[in-house]
């Protein structure tokens, strides 16, 4: 059975974390569609809720967090939020591949990659383990590694870039067609970063995947993503085709982010930092716009009403000021 790239519809997703001050939302009312066969990038600062979002796709938000509302519909799986126990476990790995940040040690330090591959195969009832190993070697070879050698290695014998490719291999080897990459290039040197991104792009196209890339690096998104979603304080503030959003950002936060990127040529002082600091779980405003404290376009309504995302063709922006300007 040849699987096809699944579409993903995230609707009204809210994830809360239990704290001494009550349950606080890390992701609030996020609606996002991943079209089949596309690469979507989610950009945001630390604490913007982007990693929590990524975990939600596997219904794997870790306690004390929980998905409080919303749904994540994945073609061929249904609403992941409703999956429990064995059903959920089997969906992970087989339908949804998850690639960890390279700096994180996502491999058991005591076992060779090959043995962990076999554990993975056994966990998912793969009968043809030889075939699985062959597939893994092919994937690794495709990414420029010596498959046999890597499978025979322990984690500490691999470099960061090699580990990341092993991570991608493990996410794809069971033929998952939805892949979530969480900070895939963080903590890698520039050349390795470029290699990994190239691999992500190529493998995505070759295998017909739907891919979600989580990053704080706009450069990464610009490189690989078809669509871009910007998160701030647990809210999705702007989304649209990557080129449009980066070329003509509308939300004041997106604009600020892009203005903060130093140019390769010209004065370093031209890059302007965003004033203020991002909210933490505890300081996210309970009502009104999450960005208003740092916003140059702040209006009275921003203090009381949370802006809805207004769709405009392929793009959507959640900002009172932008909406007012467009409708004026």
């Amino acid at each position: 059975m040849a699987k096809q790239a699944p579409g993903v519809r995230i609707d009204g997703l809210t994830v809360v974390y239990k704290t001494p001050a009550g349950e606080l939302p890390a992701v609030r009312d996020v609606t996002l569609t991943l079209e089949p066969g596309t690469i979507t990038g989610i950009v945001g600062e630390s604490g913007s809720g982007k990693s929590t979002m990524a975990l939600s796709l596997l219904n794997a938000v870790q306690p004390p967090g929980r998905i409080a509302a919303g749904s994540v519909e994945i073609d061929g799986l249904g609403d992941v939020v409703g999956l429990r126990g064995e059903e959920l476990r089997k969906a992970r790995g087989k339908h949804i591949g998850y690639v960890f940040q390279a700096a994180q040690n996502s491999l058991n330090p005591l076992k060779t990659v090959g043995k962990q591959l076999l554990d993975l195969g056994r966990s998912h009832g793969v009968d043809d383990l030889r075939g699985l190993v062959r597939e893994a070697k092919e994937l690794l070879g495709r990414m420029g590694l010596d498959g046999a050698r890597v499978l025979d290695s322990h984690q500490h014998e691999l470099s960061g870039g090699m580990r990341q490719r092993v991570g991608i291999m493990l996410a794809l080897v069971l033929n998952a067609h939805l892949v979530v990459l969480d900070e895939p290039t963080t903590a890698l040197d520039m050349i390795t970063q470029a290699n990994i991104l190239k691999i992500v792009r190529e493998v995505h196209a070759e295998r017909g995947l739907t891919t979600l890339v989580i990053t704080h690096d706009i450069g990464v998104v610009a490189e690989v993503a078809d669509r871009l979603a910007v998160m701030y304080g647990g809210r999705l503030v702007e989304q649209g085709p990557t080129r449009h959003v980066l070329g003509a950002p509308r939300h004041p936060y997106t604009r600020g982010l892009i203005r903060a990127i130093p140019r390769l040529v010209g004065d370093i002082a031209e890059a302007q930092a965003l004033p203020g600091r991002p909210p933490t779980l505890a300081t996210v405003p309970k009502e009104g716009c999450v960005f208003r404290e740092r916003c140059p376009l702040r209006m009275d309504v921003c203090d009381t009403v949370d802006p809805e995302a207004h769709a405009d063709g392929a793009r959507a922006v959640a900002c009172h000021a932008v909406t007012v300007k467009e409708h004026a």
Binding site: R89, K90, N105, L107, N108, L120, R122, S123
Partner: peptide
């Protein structure tokens, strides 16, 4: 709290295997 345990769970490893890890 180690990442590879979460990683094993997110790869859908069986509980018994994760426990052995």
């Amino acid at each position: 709290g180690d990442d590879f345990i979460l990683a094993a769970e997110l790869r859908g490893m069986k509980r018994s295997i994760v426990f052995r890890y």
